[in-house]
């Protein structure tokens, strides 16, 4: 063998780090802009952040592992109920509640993964629906613990850092949620670029090639289900802290299906799409539903059809492609 080595260029590494920092700064800026522009809608914005965590968690499964799921609400709802129940039992520290949501979501992720990974394709999708429906029904029946159809209420989280109350204005909840989203997003960007993240990408492309490398798919995918569960669980816990109510809608097929729609809308497989899709879908829902509460889904449906037909990689994928084309034409012009 020759002693040739590849140049271990630090430039791409710095470029990636720069892109990540820019991305995080943009999320923070968008968050602050949201606060400045809609100071009276902080409860809605916090809900956007909480659902963004759910959609990010779905991107890990769908975008990075190639597993379609219509049951991600099971993980989100588990986190919400776990945090809500813990809060009613005297655990009021918000950071601890988020951790409880994450842990409960991760455990549910493991269980869900263990069941779903026994099937492939359509049966796998059906299993995901069955799991969320089963949990929905369980939450409905176990009313002594979950509040049933009335939901859990009466939680009073302790003030953030002992100072900032989770009050009606929703300022503490919003900034708490925004900080959580930025931290989680940074962690996920790191995870998807780890050796584990690369293997997940490989599994999405060609599981047979991965097994020919001597890597067993099941434990890798199960690990991703647990991570996804933790992220969704944190989203659920944030919703529980912010609204101080946990309802059956948090563990429903509807929220699961909406999450998938948001992900497709934004673009799968690079995390940014999850955020873009969530913001656009929920903004549309918020604005159009206020104008016409009965037919707002028609507009969302039309937008989705347009995206699938004209921008199949989702909005973020199309923006990415446009930026690449622009850079290339500039480069050509500069030659």
């Amino acid at each position: 063998m020759t002693g040739a080595t590849l140049p271990h260029d630090t430039a791409p590494r710095l470029r990636t780090l720069g892109q990540d920092l820019l991305g995080l700064a943009l999320i923070a800026l968008a968050g602050l802009a949201g606060y400045a522009l809609f100071p009276d809608n902080l409860a809605f914005l916090t809900r956007v952040v909480s659902v963004a965590l759910l959609v990010l968690s779905l991107d890990l499964i769908v975008g990075y592992c190639g597993i379609a799921s219509l049951g991600q609400g099971a993980l989100y709802g588990t986190g919400a109920y776990a945090a809500g129940i813990a809060c009613l039992h005297g655990v009021t520290e918000p950071f601890l509640l988020i951790l409880i949501g994450a842990a409960a979501g991760a455990v549910m992720g493991l269980l869900m993964g263990a069941v779903m990974l026994r099937a492939h394709g359509l049966p796998q999708l059906v299993l995901s629906i069955a799991i969320v429906q089963l949990l929905h029904e369980a939450a409905n029946k176990a009313s002594s613990i979950t509040g049933g159809s009335d939901g859990l209420s009466g939680m009073v989280p302790a003030p953030l850092f002992g100072v900032f109350e989770f009050d009606l204005w929703g300022r503490s909840a919003y900034f708490f949620g925004l900080a959580l989203l930025i931290l989680v997003f940074a962690a996920l960007r790191f995870i998807v670029r780890s050796p584990f993240g690369m293997v997940c990408r490989g599994l999405k492309e060609d599981p047979l090639r991965i097994s020919a490398l001597g890597i067993r798919a099941f434990p890798v995918l199960l690990k991703m289900f647990a991570i996804s569960g933790a992220v969704a669980g944190m989203g659920g816990a944030l919703a529980a802290i912010a609204t101080q109510v946990v309802g059956l809608d948090s563990v429903s097929f509807e929220i699961s299906a909406n999450a998938l729609v948001m992900l497709v809308l934004g673009g799968i497989g690079h995390l940014y799409g999850a955020l873009i899709g969530t913001v656009i879908f929920m903004a549309l829902e918020h604005v159009v539903a206020a104008i016409n509460p009965f037919h707002w889904m028609t507009l969302v449906g039309a937008v989705l059809i347009a995206i699938v037909l004209f921008a199949p990689r989702g909005l973020s994928g199309t923006l990415d492609e446009a930026a690449r084309l622009l850079t290339r034409s500039r480069w050509r012009a500069g030659r």
């Binding site: 050796p195 993240g197 434990p219």
Partner: peptide, 17 residues
């Protein structure tokens, strides 16, 4: 990825690929 797998490090989360 192949070399990392040979060394048992292909599925590490807390590492940069």
């Amino acid at each position: 990825m192949t070399i990392l797998q040979r060394h048992g490090r292909a599925t590490r989360i807390f590492a940069r690929f």
